[in-house]
Design a binder for these strands. Structure first.
Length: 253
DNA sequence: AAATCCCTCAACCGCCGGTTT
DNA sequence: GAAACCGGCGGTTGAGGGATT
């Protein structure tokens, strides 16, 4: 599966990593971090180049990496993002916690490329329209009325919810305005991330959507419903944004 | 059972952009 | 401003293993 070990002219080892090398790398990074990849192999006692160490760590050894099959939802996100951004694997990987750009790239070439082509063919005959069901738990809301409706529903759920509901559900609103550069940025400075029951009862939290940590910084910002109405659902903006519900989250594209 | 084909995925390579000297 | 350094990215490679002939 991997290249066999070899050494280049400078005595730098290449090819498959041994378990011993992995352990050296892991224990070094756990103790010292990786402030300088080029220096790291020397300090860690590895006969590797810094790039190789970095790659091994990022793609294979670092914690919280997901292994195994991709879910239908993950596939759908990859297809959707690839449709929008092309081969920006690192960008796509940011939205799929636990998956690396390399994993996604490989998966794309081995599985999804063909599917994407098929989908392009079939989409030409697909009728553009209102809420269109997707084949794998991912629902797209494409009309303005549907977007307004789904945001209304979300608001109602939150406004009628007890603090316990807020604490125990995984209801998530994930939004990232960078997907739609034409839309205004969301001002989050006036919002709050506090979510204690006291603050909820006092009304301080009435309009705040709770965020689940999804990936990177973008997904942890709080969000206010007025912003959603004014920025995403205002007919003057054309509501030109793709909104998907997915695994308890709303994804804005 | 052996040979060949095809797929997967870890790893390499070259390039680029940002930062430091 | 130029050169060197560094991290990160995307394209590509190639060994291993399963499927097929």
């Amino acid at each position: 599966m991997v290249r066999g070990p070899s050494f280049d002219a400078n005595g730098v080892k290449k090819g498959a990593w041994s378990e011993e090398e992995d352990q050296k790398l892991i224990s070094f990074i756990q103790t010292h971090g990786h402030p300088n990849w080029r220096q790291l192999p020397k300090l860690a006692g590895l006969a590797r180049c810094g790039k190789s160490c970095r790659l091994r760590w990022m793609n294979y050894l670092r914690p919280n990496l997901k292994r195994g099959n991709y879910t239908a939802q993950e596939e759908e996100i990859i297809l959707k993002l690839h449709e929008q951004h092309g081969n920006k694997w690192s960008l796509i990987a940011e939205k799929l916690p636990g998956r690396t750009d390399n994993h996604i790239k490989n998966y794309w070439h081995s599985q999804l490329k063909r599917r994407s082509r098929d989908r392009e063919k079939s989409s030409s005959s697909e009728v553009k329209g209102k809420k269109s069901g997707r084949h794998n738990n991912m629902t797209k809301y494409s009309s303005e009325a549907d977007i307004v409706k789904v945001v209304n529903e979300l608001s109602n759920i939150l406004e009628s919810s007890s603090p316990e509901f807020m604490d125990t559900t995984s209801l998530t609103l994930a939004a990232h305005d960078n997907y739609s550069p034409s839309l205004p940025s969301i001002d989050t400075e006036s919002t709050t991330t506090k979510n204690s029951p006291e603050e909820y009862n006092s009304g301080a939290l009435r309009e705040v959507y709770k965020f689940q940590e999804f990936s990177g910084d973008f997904w942890t910002e709080p969000f206010v419903s007025e912003d959603i109405y004014s920025e995403y659902c205002n007919p003057n903006n054309g509501a030109a944004v793709d909104i998907f519900s997915y695994d308890g989250a709303l994804l804005f594209f």
